[in-house]
């Protein structure tokens, strides 16, 4: 912060990288993933722009004149010049986002928050459990793990969606399933006729998933109820509470721990999370309306 002393105007300039100021990014395209979910593909407005982010982090995205919301980054952390955010259309801001055209500009603040511990989990089996749109914040972790595949043991993805039509990244999922070094199991809550895959909640995939609980780290993301029951199943299989990570979601107005909205007990989901280790979270997750 510079203060021009002696100046009669007494004006101080804000710090250059003020985390409350939105940076402009261009909409490259908007990809329709399912009926109500879409992915925003953004690129920096100038040639030197990029966003170095860690898997699990989020941005605050601003639509001019409408509002701002937190959305997890769902792209590849090794490609910082392409910024992807997958979101559901649930309110005014996401509705406005859906209407954007290539070339439109969006305000971006971030990246904020804690990341999936991909570095710290080297050597372990990785179990990724995604429910619904929870696959979006997990995808960057999977990209990162696959980019250094030999540093990990078994890597297993369990994915639960509402129906086959609601599955995200379908083509990518099929590509992942085809790999020999990645196990992918998917299930749906509700099948359509002709579906010959699994039907049932994603927790039913856990007892049989091929990983070693004693040396596994689990990354879980989805609706909170789904995460709670997933953790139960993981604990039943012998995964340690300190080896389970969840990604939470709360109301956020600033993203930097100053507005108070995102608190869960003592934790600010925007800066102590959104990725949180289960043992630190356990008590608060069980308190209703905490």
């Amino acid at each position: 912060m510079q203060i021009r002393s002696g100046s009669s105007q007494n004006i101080a300039m804000p710090a250059p990288a003020d985390p409350m100021l939105a940076q402009p990014w261009c909409v490259c395209r908007i990809v329709r993933e399912t009926d109500d979910t879409f992915t925003l593909e953004l690129k920096p407005q100038n040639r030197s722009g990029q966003m170095n982010f860690k898997p699990g982090q989020f941005n605050m995205l601003y639509v001019f004149g409408v509002g701002e919301i937190p959305i997890s980054i769902s792209g590849d952390p090794t490609q910082p010049r392409i910024l992807l955010h997958t979101t559901r259309e649930v309110g005014a801001v996401t509705r406005a986002m859906r209407q954007l055209k290539p070339g439109d500009v969006i305000g971006v603040r971030g990246p904020f928050g804690t990341a999936w511990p991909v570095d710290e989990s080297e050597g372990a089996d990785i179990l990724i459990v995604a429910g619904g749109i929870g696959l979006a914040p997990l995808r960057p972790a999977l990209y990162r793990i696959l980019s250094r595949r030999d540093l990990y043991g078994r890597v297993v993805l369990l994915y639960g969606a509402r129906t086959p039509a609601d599955m995200l990244y379908r083509r990518e999922l099929e590509g992942w399933r085809a790999r020999f070094d990645l196990e992918v199991y998917a299930t749906v809550d509700r099948a359509m006729s002709g579906w010959r895959g699994n039907v049932g909640v994603v927790t039913t995939l856990i007892p049989r998933a091929p990983f070693d609980p004693s040396s596994a780290v689990a990354f879980v993301c989805g609706p909170e109820v789904m995460m709670r029951f997933t953790v139960d199943e993981l604990l039943k299989r012998g995964v340690q509470p300190h080896a389970i990570y969840l990604s939470l979601e709360r109301n956020m107005k600033c993203g930097i721990g100053l507005c108070g909205h995102c608190q869960l007990g003592p934790l600010f989901v925007c800066k102590d999370g959104p990725v949180l280790r289960y043992d630190k979270l356990a008590d608060w997750l069980q308190k209703w309306e905490a």
Binding site: Y62, V66, G260
Partner: peptide, 8 residues
């Protein structure tokens, strides 16, 4: 605690 109002 604060909130933000985005206006145009």
């Amino acid at each position: 605690c604060t909130t933000v109002d985005d206006t145009s």
